[in-house]
């Protein structure tokens, strides 16, 4: 997931490195670091804004490590789902237990079905649905679509996925 974090550093040398170390220790991927040296806080500290990607179970460890090194964590904002995908399903979507299809995606922990539009023209005719799936990353979105395809094979549904866009 992507985390955006506001920190406050003491105005002494070596503080920025100290602030970045826990992120790198837990294999986080730094996206941006903005060091507001000119904007002191009323307490005389220097505000720093960090954005990084990290596995969600490491976030608490990073926060504790920062606090242990005397860095104030002012705010933490997580954005869990970065990727949005859409697929179309065709077949007997409802009669093959639509709840089960959605649950299997939701239970992955890395993707969720966030929208479903269903068209059922007539009894005994195949239904069509558009499904929106959010996932934590591009790789996990592909994994969720692969999972959906394997569920669809068992339930004889056709999955229409988007082309790769370069």
């Amino acid at each position: 997931m992507r985390v955006s974090m506001d920190l406050e550093l003491k105005d002494i040398p070596g503080q920025l490195v100290l602030a970045l170390k826990p992120v790198s220790e837990f294999k986080g991927n730094l996206i941006s670091v903005v060091h507001h040296h000119e904007k002191r806080t009323p307490r005389g500290k220097i505000p720093v804004h960090l954005v990084f990607e990290i596995k969600s179970d490491h976030l608490d460890n990073i926060i504790s490590l920062l606090e242990e090194s005397g860095i104030s964590v002012v705010s933490v904002d997580e954005k869990r789902y970065l990727e949005h995908g859409a697929v179309i399903l065709i077949g007997h979507i409802v009669h093959t237990d639509i709840q089960d299809t959605i649950d299997k995606i939701d239970n992955t922990g890395y993707a969720e079905v966030v929208d479903l539009n269903l068209a059922m023209p007539r009894i005994n005719r195949p239904s069509s649905a558009s499904l929106k799936i959010d996932a934590v990353s591009k790789e996990y979105l592909s994994a969720a679509i692969e999972l959906l395809k394997s569920i669809a094979r068992d339930k004889d549904l056709l999955v229409i996925e988007p082309i790769r866009v370069n």
Partner: peptide, 28 residues
Amino acid sequence: TGITRITPEALSLANADGFAIKLIGEVN
């Protein structure tokens, strides 16, 4: 996979999301 199972409803739903449905061949 061919196009025989495609429904007009699927085409409309795709269109509402800004997509067309096309039979795509790819080598990747």
